[in-house]
């Protein structure tokens, strides 16, 4: 038992790093799932898309920040395509996402020049390596601090955005799209904007993860949607009573908790291959506990 905790605490820093990086993707999924009420499976393709673009650019010597901007733009383009397929061709949300996700698998391989695995050499500058900022930070915490700063920046920007005119309209589109029409706006366009923002964040997260791990894998997107959704649901359901805390904060904590559960399961001795099963069980547990609580509330009343 003691060694389980030992293992868990040893991996805590990397759990935090990964949790923070994945939190950015979860924030993207929050925009589509929670705000827009759109089940967007593009995520499984746009996450590795961000990684592929970013890794390729960083290897060819492009600055890591510029590489991330390009990743985010590519993610937005993927969201745009899903949105156009859904809105203009009137294809169901799930199918639109699956179509783009499937197409992106090939696109990602094209970007990497056909290799399903590429690593960023140790001498290349990334956000977390070989730059002035990292060297000025104390060793060992640099990665966490940079990841934290990035996530907080995205969180604050997203919070601000959701209070703008466009942000309010985006929330209205998810809440009651009839109101968007009554306000003389094309609800399809609003959905497209939401999908672009969400997938830009997802691709950004993929790019950051690749810079941190110095590794791109074509399969890194498998289960990305479920993982993010689990983070969103853990965060939002666990802190339901904290009405003053913003959803963005809850989602970030949710992503970190998810990663903690993951590393706990590994410490207990499960294999990495079992983890999809663990995710699925966790997901099921959270969703059904919500149902049980509602039933309880009905009985109380």
């Amino acid at each position: 038992m003691a060694s389980v905790f030992q293992n868990f605490f040893n991996t805590l820093p990397s759990t935090l790093e990964q949790g923070l990086i994945y939190a950015m993707m979860a924030l993207g999924v929050m925009v589509t799932y929670l705000i827009l009420d759109f089940p967007d499976l593009t995520v499984d393709g746009s996450f590795p898309l961000g990684g592929a673009v970013c890794s390729t650019l960083v290897i060819s010597g492009v600055s890591p920040i510029l590489a991330l901007c390009v990743s985010a733009a590519c993610g937005a383009a993927a969201g745009l395509i899903t949105g156009l397929i859904h809105v203009k061709l009137r294809i169901r949300a799930l199918f639109s996402g699956i179509i783009v996700m499937t197409a992106l698998y090939s696109v990602n391989l094209r970007i990497t020049g056909g290799s399903s695995l590429i690593s960023i050499p140790r001498d290349k500058a990334t956000l977390f390596r070989n730059n002035g900022l990292v060297q000025s930070l104390p060793e060992g915490v640099g990665t966490i601090l940079i990841a934290l700063a990035l996530v907080l920046a995205v969180k604050v920007l997203l919070d601000l955005f959701l209070k703008t005119r466009l942000g309010l309209l985006l929330r209205a589109a998810g809440d009651n799209d009839k109101v968007v029409t009554l306000l003389a706006r094309d609800k399809g366009n609003v959905k497209i904007v939401g999908l672009m923002i969400a997938n830009a964040l997802v691709a950004l997260s993929g790019g950051i993860l690749c810079q941190q791990q110095r590794l791109f894998e074509i399969s890194m997107g498998t289960g990305a949607m479920v993982l993010s959704l689990a983070s969103v649901i853990i965060g939002v359901n666990l802190f339901k009573r904290l009405e003053r805390v913003r959803s963005t904060s809850k989602v970030i904590v949710g992503a970190i908790l998810y990663k903690a559960c993951y590393s706990l399961a590994i410490s207990i001795g499960l294999r990495p291959g079992d983890m999809k099963l663990v995710t699925a069980m966790l997901f099921l547990a959270i969703l059904s506990s919500g149902l049980l609580r509602r039933k309880g509330a009905v009985l109380d009343a």
Partner: peptide
């Protein structure tokens, strides 16, 4: 109310309320 008030305005990144 803010949404309704913005009905005929440009939809941009100005504060919503």
């Amino acid at each position: 109310l803010s949404l309704a008030d913005n009905k005929q305005k440009k939809m941009n990144l100005l504060p919503g309320t």
